[in-house]
């Protein structure tokens, strides 16, 4: 065994490894997408339009948020944690109570004649309400609706609402329409 040079490492496959890594990162990295709560604003009201007919008191679920971020739901103070269940109970009205919203019979695809709640959620906040609190309330209301829709979808098709096809989703949306109306804010507890 004499003196021998170390053979050069073959670098020909280096490019292959590099590309492999590149493809690996390409596939696994997810670009952070923006996400948020989707809502639909009502179209602007023409000035000459006459005011809509008043809605019966029992059909309205009023939520007021004051400048100290406290909630008043149907005249009673409530914590945000309870809001979701209260909203669900309001829309479902499981015991058909007098004070809770009425139902109207409606023809729905897949379901036939179905009782659809006439309930409307009305949300009003103060100008001083914290944005985070307002969003939390919106979030809880959306959660109430999505839970209702999911429950119905599971009962009917044994699937989550998200997994249904467009027609089925539409049918469920007819039964549980997301009716949240937002009143003009009040300016009572203005912080200076």
């Amino acid at each position: 065994m004499g003196k021998r040079d170390v053979p050069e490492v073959n670098a020909g496959s280096m490019a292959d490894i590099a590309f492999l890594l590149l493809i690996f990162f390409l596939v696994t990295t997810t670009m952070d997408t923006d996400s948020g709560l989707m809502t639909q604003l009502p179209p602007p009201v023409p000035i000459d339009q006459e005011p809509p007919p008043p809605i019966k008191d029992r059909n309205v679920f009023t939520i007021l948020i004051n400048s100290k971020n406290q909630l008043l739901v149907k005249g009673k103070p409530m914590r945000v944690e309870e809001l979701k269940d209260a909203a669900k109970e309001f829309v479902m009205n499981p015991n058909r109570e007098e004070k809770m919203p009425e139902f109207k019979q409606e023809e729905v695809d897949f379901f036939g004649l179905y009782e659809v709640s006439k309930g409307v959620i009305s949300l009003q906040n103060d100008n001083g309400t914290q944005y985070a609190r307002y969003l939390l309330v919106q979030n809880e209301l959306q959660r109430a609706y999505s839970e209702l829709r999911n429950e119905l979808a599971r009962r009917k098709w044994n699937k989550d609402y998200e997994q249904l096809n467009d027609d089925q989703q539409k049918a469920i949306r007819t039964i549980y329409p997301q009716r949240i109306s937002e009143a003009e804010p009040k300016n009572i507890g203005k912080k200076l």
């Binding site: 996400s35 709560l37 989707m38 809502t39 604003l41 009502p42 602007p44 914290q130 804010p185």
Partner: peptide, 29 residues
Amino acid sequence: ADYDTPMGIITDIKQALRKAQALKLNYSA
């Protein structure tokens, strides 16, 4: 919007968006 923003300014924006017919709204969170 920042979480601590008062709603007054947000409501003003919403009214402006309604007037501008930009009705699809997303609250980033």
